[in-house]
């Protein structure tokens, strides 16, 4: 079954990197349904496409990842969220997991780490 992925990050470089990595042969059942640069855009896209997975940055303009996770957890409880954030954000990450995210990936991350984290979430 193909799973729909929404990529949320305010950095275009990170967004594109994640998108490119999703072409990895190890992730055959992943289809990218959208790329969002801030929390508001992310919530809008998520409501439109109802993704199965979301990669979520925490520090973003307009609406931060924390708030975005809260909203997604309420409106789309089936959606699984992978927090992709900097190492120093451990406290924030803990809060994000408490709010309903299911995974956490430190920035900077390697290709293998991202693929592993997504596979883990797809299980």
């Amino acid at each position: 079954m193909t799973m729909k992925l929404l990529i949320v990050d305010d950095s275009m470089v990170i967004r594109n990197r994640i998108a490119r990595l999703c072409q990895d042969m190890r992730l055959p059942n992943l289809e990218i349904v959208g790329l969002a640069g801030d929390g508001q855009q992310a919530v809008a896209l998520a409501e439109q496409f109802r993704p199965d997975l979301v990669t979520m940055d925490l520090t973003m303009p307009k609406m931060d990842g924390d708030e975005c996770i809260s909203r997604l957890a309420t409106r789309l409880p089936e959606t699984r969220i992978l927090v992709v954030s900097a190492l120093s954000d451990k406290t924030t990450a803990l809060k994000a997991i408490k709010k309903g995210a299911q995974g956490f990936l430190h920035k900077p991350f390697s290709d293998d780490e991202l693929v592993e984290a997504l596979l883990e979430l797809m299980r």
């Binding site: 275009m12 594109n16 998108a19 490119r20 999703c22 289809e31 990218i32 790329l35």
Partner: peptide
Amino acid sequence: TPGFSLQEEANEHAGRGVGLDLIRDMASR
């Protein structure tokens, strides 16, 4: 647009709907 592909089955080289979207981003950069 992100995620759109004419190909139904994805393989290593196509079908994920990411290529043209990426090229557009790269071009704008």
